[in-house]
Each structure stands twice: as structure tokens, then as C-alpha cells.
Design a protein around this nucleic acid. Sequence first.
DNA 1: CGTCACATGTAAAAGGTTACATGATTCG
DNA 2: CGAATCATGTAACCTTTTACATGTGACG
Lengths: 196, 196
Amino acid sequence: MSLRYAVLAALVHGEATGYELAKRFDAGVANFWHARPQQIYAELTRLHESELVRATEVPQRNRPTKRVFALTDAGVAELVAFAAAPKQPTALRDELMVAVQAADVVDPDVLVEALDRQAERARRKLAHFRDVERSILSGRTEEEFVRTTRHLGPYLTCRAGIRLETETAQWCAWAIELLRARQGRDQAPKANCPTA
Amino acid sequence: MSLRYAVLAALVHGEATGYELAKRFDAGVANFWHARPQQIYAELTRLHESELVRATEVPQRNRPTKRVFALTDAGVAELVAFAAAPKQPTALRDELMVAVQAADVVDPDVLVEALDRQAERARRKLAHFRDVERSILSGRTEEEFVRTTRHLGPYLTCRAGIRLETETAQWCAWAIELLRARQGRDQAPKANCPTA
DNA sequence: CGTCACATGTAAAAGGTTACATGATTCG
DNA sequence: CGAATCATGTAACCTTTTACATGTGACG
């Protein structure tokens, strides 16, 4: 039932089409909830039926008509109620970590490659979040910003994303080092000592 | 299909009962995958049918007979194949973050309370991971450990958990500060200026 | 001339959660 | 004497993923 609130929350700071929301949730750009486009479209339909969002059809030349969604007052009220309700703990599912947990039985080279890809992905997301941060602050210091903004929410979650992706990239680099260090023990002899 | 591999990975470093695995996956103690007990039992049944794990029935006095599961060679092979296959990006679902994203329309006190609970949860998990780390290293330095261990996997994921929970607790504290700072602007006048 | 971005969905299958069920023992 | 721990599941329901479907315009 939480996708409902995730979509509402994504609309707090302005209207959007299903397509735009889908990109945020699918690309992992929304750093707090993940969902596929099909889910977003279905959820928007349901939210519209419940009148928690209103839809405006915008005809376009040479493109399909799009529906722009915005929160209704009832939608805002729903979010307020959600915020007050007890939260489920964070649910994490990470295939790479499953592979890493099995590090002692799998090929280290394969793991290092996967860790490299993960680190690269983290750096890309980090760059994105830094852009978002810059555009949110738009020149103000954090102190100035906090006292004047109506966009504290996005700033807080953006900072969470920055911290998370920074950590991820650093951890990957550290893990790669350790795997290589151990490989050094196992494989250097093969290269250095033809007798082995 | 990944729960399958998560369970196999959890068995790499020793046998366990469904009950023990269920605790690890449910309590969020397994820091890389989340699953409910019912899922674990069902998955173990399937893994057993596929002969990726073997089960040993252990009768106990005054307790129901338990089934202790261990990886078979085929199970290890399955894990090796999984490690080499492309990984899906990390999927995160965090209800608290949804509420934080909506910070500009919800009651700040309610959010601060929720952030406090999250920080507390993070500190508890952190304490647990530190215990695990200590018991893995058991007095050795990291360098010694890496050169001699067959338990690098658990150490790597444990360190990821430590970093993640540390970050989470710090971010929560920072977010609380910012919310309070903004509240100061809105609410201090109410107390200090009876004219307002 | 192929592929990407825009823009929206349906339908079937897989995966995950919630509620329920059982039953002894130990701890406070 | 009630609650938590050990130990295992079934059944119904809800959520999520995957595969499929459609059509134009811009870019290289």
C-alpha cells in the first residue's frame, strides 16, 4: 500500500505526468522508493479514482496527449495521515550483496567486476544527486536555504542519496582492495614461483 | 528468483535451520536481503526438492524435531553461476523517506519522532554488526584476517552494514536538526511574541 | 533507416505479506 | 500465569515484475 504514498510524495512539489514519475521511480533516481512504469500508471489511475490527485489532459502536436497529475487537498491530507502512521523498517534487496556474502566460494575476478559496475553506478547517481542539490540550493548556503525554503523535503532526501551513494562507492573500492589483497596471496605464487 | 540465492548465500558458512535463517532475514539482521519466515520455509522446501541443499532431521527432547540445512555441491555451483550473472541494481523501499520527502506539508514534530525511532533502530543494528565484526575478526587485525580467513564474505557484508547504519544514524540526527531549525523560525515567535 | 525519447497502458505470472494454526518450555 | 523462544508450516490476499501492445518525431 505504500507505493500510493510514494507517488503522492513525489507530487508534493509540483505536478507531473505518469511518464515523468515513472522515470524518477524506475531509474532509481527517486532514492527512497523503486517502482516500474506500469506500476506508476496503475497507481495514478487508482489515485485519480479516489480523487487524491487531479488530472489535466494536455494535447500536444505530434505527440500523444499527456495527463498531468497534481495533488488535491484530499491527497495532501492522505500524506499527512501517512506521515503520522507507524513506518515499516527499510526493506533492502541487493543482489550484489548476496554474491559478496558468498565471496569465499565464488571467483574473485567475477566479484571484482560486479563491484566495479556497482561503484560506477553509484558515482553516476552521486553526480546526479549533486546536480539536484545544486539546483535546490541555487547559490544559497544551507542555513539561508533552511530558513526560507518550501522544499526542505527534497533537500533532505537528496542529501540522504548523496550520503548513501558516497558510502556505496567507497565500500565497493574497499571491498575490491580486500579481494585483490587475498588474490595476491593465492595467485601471485602462480606467477612468481613456477614450482608451485 | 533471488531469494533462492540469498538463502544459499546465507548457508555458505555453515548449516542452519529454517528458524535461524528466518530470524536473520526477518530481523533485518541479514543486511542485504529481507524476507519473512514463511518465505524462508517455502524456499528451503524448494531448494531441498532441487537438491541444492540437504536436510538433516535432528530430534530434540521437549522441542519439535528440527531440520538442519546445508549446501550441496550443486548448491554451491548454483551460487557460483549466480555470482557471474548480471545483477539487478539495489532495490530500496523506505517508508520514512517517503514521509521526509513530504516534509513541507506534514507536521515537523511527527517527522522528528519518526526520525528518532529510525536513528534508534540504526544504532541497535550498528551495535549488532559491531558484535558480529568482533567475533569475525576475533582479535586479529584486518590485514592478518584477510590473509588467513575463509570468511571474507561475511566480513565484507558486515562492514557494509556498519557503514550503512552509521550513515543512517548520522543522517537522521542531521535531518532532525534541520527540521528543528526551521521550526524555530515558525514556532519560537508563538512563544516569544504574544502579539503574533 | 534504425533507435531513442515521448506517452500510455493490459494481462499473465511471479513474488511477498498477513492471518492463522500448533504445541512445549523457559523466564520473569 | 502471561509472554517470549523454539520450530514449522498453510491459505488467501496483495504487490511487483515481465511480456506485450501502439504510434509519432527527432537524431545520427
